[in-house]
Design a protein around this nucleic acid. Structure first.
Lengths: 346, 346
DNA sequence: ATGAAAGCGCTAACAT
DNA sequence: ATGTTAGCGCTTTCAT
């Protein structure tokens, strides 16, 4: 099973087939034409010896990297897992090996990972950064094709693929207004993350008569006391709008622990659609991000860069889908069970 | 940003520092003692030129792989994502780079991935196989350290880490019996997967007076008509027990679509604890697999093998935790809200 | 303690 | 169409 460090070398194959190493290489890579008889002999030798190429030598010598690095903040976030999974498929289709790593939400680890990946000499990089300070984390050296996805770095000098955060958040807030909400508490992990920032700004821009307030709750998967306090007693807002995956989950759990019904006692909406949001009753109003499309877009941008395109940085914004469900019911009168209504964010 | 395929070579650094390449290597790897003055000169040159090592050349020459491969059936399965994430942390701690790939539940792709990974000459492999036929998929060649996790291959000649599937399933079934259930439909994706097989056998062994029936539903995330039919009308079983993540999700969704209440109309239990199972009401009785422990155990076994241990294959079974919740209520009289009760499976 | 030289496995350039 | 030679960037051995 596999080559335990050793494995036969191409020279051994050549010897066995009675040809030169160069010819074996030509047979295996189809680079130059080889006589059918020789080709067959080589293949037999390869088979008999269980030969397989050593990519370290091959790529070193040829200078052709055919390797791309992918770094995400957290592999256990289903959104990022789907992103990676899609990229993997695309990379493979185009003959690229992918090195996938997670920074585990830790900027220090992000730096470390970036340094280590680089030592494999990837032809390009796709990064979902931990936060906006990516530029300071990139190791020095000659520039390399790089696409930043999902989160926007402070320095605007990278190719970028993201979603229309502001528009999607605005759509949710408008909906809350239409449903008769008067005030809404908006929560997110941290405004240091561009997504959260843009969503909060989008929400504010669409507030109208709706009173909005923001609370940062951090990355702990347990909601902080501050949030619990805001939801307790008479001052409780009519609506709760969560701006990211972690927050949505933590806040929903908190509601349950406090005995508050999403929809019944507080209107509830969140970002990042997940399976459970359709399983609970009432189902949860959410913004679905087009993760697969983000991955596809990132990959095609990176491919172009790896192909040598040196134009100015490009930015693409993809559209989210907002699905209104029972957790954001009309505040005044009839709380009739309506079918889901989906709209384009923006 | 990183080294765009090029990057300065160690010889350039040597030249700049006025020393030989070997000395630069010694400074960077701390292998031999170098005079402080020289060492400092080298570091300055490294800094100025933005030099970083080329792992392809380094590992090729030294013969030290320090690379481990990880292949899982599906990265979007949260269990496997957690597995990989833990491994990544452990690998890094021990100075290993990890190549992580997904087979996307496709045996053909599994073969492909195994072949490609091997060309990077990893020192070892951790595999969660698509199915039992792993032995046939491993590329030929000299044997390499290999740990199989979670799913048991038909051929029993590998190091193995798995959970106590039978005991955990038996605990659930016993609980259903105690709760007064008379018949239970057991569903799983496929008996071709060892976990499902072992769980089904564990369930049967603990059935007692409980009538059990098995239905395979495949990998589609939508439940098949056969299941819907079994749940419709008078012949509906009192309990539904799902043997894996995919099935649990699909079946729960189906119940909702059919207007059946888990717990109220059918007792419901599943495998693979997920966040939503505590968010729905009533909460879902589930078996929690110790994923992080599986990853840790896999890594330590692989490390030992990579360290040269050539003993006979070892098998480790880790214990699951079964949590009884409201979805499996007493069938006869009082359906009182009890607090969660957790037990050790086995 | 340092330099010089060899060579890991492979592919590319050139020669035949 | 095939063999020969050189060298990718690095580490290691052997001199010194």
């Amino acid at each position: 099973m596999g080559g335990g460090g050793a494995g036969p070398s191409i020279r051994l194959v050549a010897e066995r087939a009675g040809v030169s190493a160069g010819t074996v290489s030509n047979v295996l890579n189809g680079k130059a034409s080889v006589a059918p008889a020789i080709s067959a002999r080589v293949r037999v030798a390869v088979e008999q010896l269980g030969y397989f190429r050593d990519n370290r030598a091959s790529r070193l010598r040829s200078g052709d990297s055919r390797l791309a690095g992918v770094i995400v903040p957290d592999l256990t976030n289903p959104m990022f897992a789907a992103f990676v999974s899609t990229l993997e498929q695309l990379g493979r289709r185009d003959g690229y090996d992918l090195v996938v790593v997670s920074a585990r939400n830790d900027p220090a680890e992000e730096v470390e990972r970036l340094r280590r990946i680089r030592e494999w000499r990837p032809a390009g990089l796709i990064v979902i950064p931990c936060d906006g300070a990516l530029a300071e984390r990139l190791p020095g050296g000659p520039p390399m094709p790089l696409v930043v996805a999902d989160r926007i770095p402070d320095a605007p000098r990278f190719d970028l693929v993201a979603v229309d955060n502001a528009e999607a958040a605005a759509a949710v807030v408008r909906h809350l207004g239409v449903q008769g909400c008067e005030d809404c508490l908006v929560v997110g992990t941290s405004l240091a993350i561009s997504n959260v920032r843009e969503r909060w700004e989008g929400a504010r821009s669409a507030a109208g008569n709706l009173r909005l307030d923001f609370l940062a709750v951090g990355f702990d998967d347990h909601a902080p006391p501050a949030l619990e306090e805001r939801l307790r007693g008479a001052g409780r807002p009519q609506a709760l709008f969560c701006l990211d995956h972690e927050t949505t989950l933590a806040a929903y759990r908190l509601l349950g622990e406090m005995g508050l019904g999403a929809g019944a006692d507080v209107a509830f909406a969140g970002f990042d659609e997940m399976e459970w949001m359709r399983l609970v009753a009432p189902a949860v109003t959410t913004v679905r991000q087009p993760v697969e499309a983000m991955a596809a877009c990132s990959w095609s941008m990176l491919r172009r860069r790896m192909g040598g395109d040196a134009g100015p940085p490009q930015a693409r914004r993809l559209r989210c889908a907002v699905t209104f469900r029972g957790s954001t019911p009309r505040q005044t009168a009839s709380r009739s069970r309506e079918a889901d209504r989906t709209t384009q964010g923006g």
